[in-house]
Design a protein around this nucleic acid. Structure first.
Length: 134
DNA sequence: ATGCTGACTCGTC
DNA sequence: CGACGAGCCAGCA
């Protein structure tokens, strides 16, 4: 399988997986990669989301049909990117009921991640009790 | 062709 | 805790 086609498969797989995240819940880049059987490719998950086509493109997967905002990093924070991008993600999350706080360093944290955390390090202790991750 | 850059993560020190 | 190094690999200069 040619390299370019592999990339195509990957991005589509990422988009399809992200669409499985229920509204109001979040997961990590690493967990999406894990679900796709390539736990080391969290970085490429981010690349794919960055390349999400605009809604006007008319394509199947767009920034409107794929809930990109529900993917954050393993620290439970919204990752940095182009100026304004992180803020748009925070706004989109708040719109669906996810609480996003900003610390004194200007970093944006998601308060209560409730979905599909990769079963390693959790972003905070409070997540452990009261929530079951199957 | 070559080298650097990331919407990343994990193990080690 | 933070810092570092190592995998990862599609873009882009």
């Amino acid at each position: 399988m040619p390299r370019s086609e592999e990339a195509e498969w990957w991005t589509n797989a990422v988009y399809a997986a992200v669409q499985e995240i229920p509204p109001g819940q979040v997961t990590t880049y690493g967990y999406i990669a894990f679900l796709l059987g390539e736990p080391q490719r969290g970085r490429q998950v981010g690349m794919s989301l960055k390349a999400l086509p605009a809604p006007e493109s008319g394509l199947h997967f767009t920034s409107q049909s794929v809930p990109w905002q529900r993917v954050i990093n393993a620290k439970g924070m919204i990752s940095h990117r182009e100026p304004g991008g992180a803020t748009r993600q925070a706004d989109a999350l708040r719109l669906e009921g996810v609480e996003v706080t900003i610390d004194n360093m200007g970093e944006m944290h998601v308060s209560f991640p409730q979905y599909g955390w990769f079963p390693k390090r959790l972003p905070s202790e409070e997540v452990d009790d009261g929530l079951k991750l199957d």
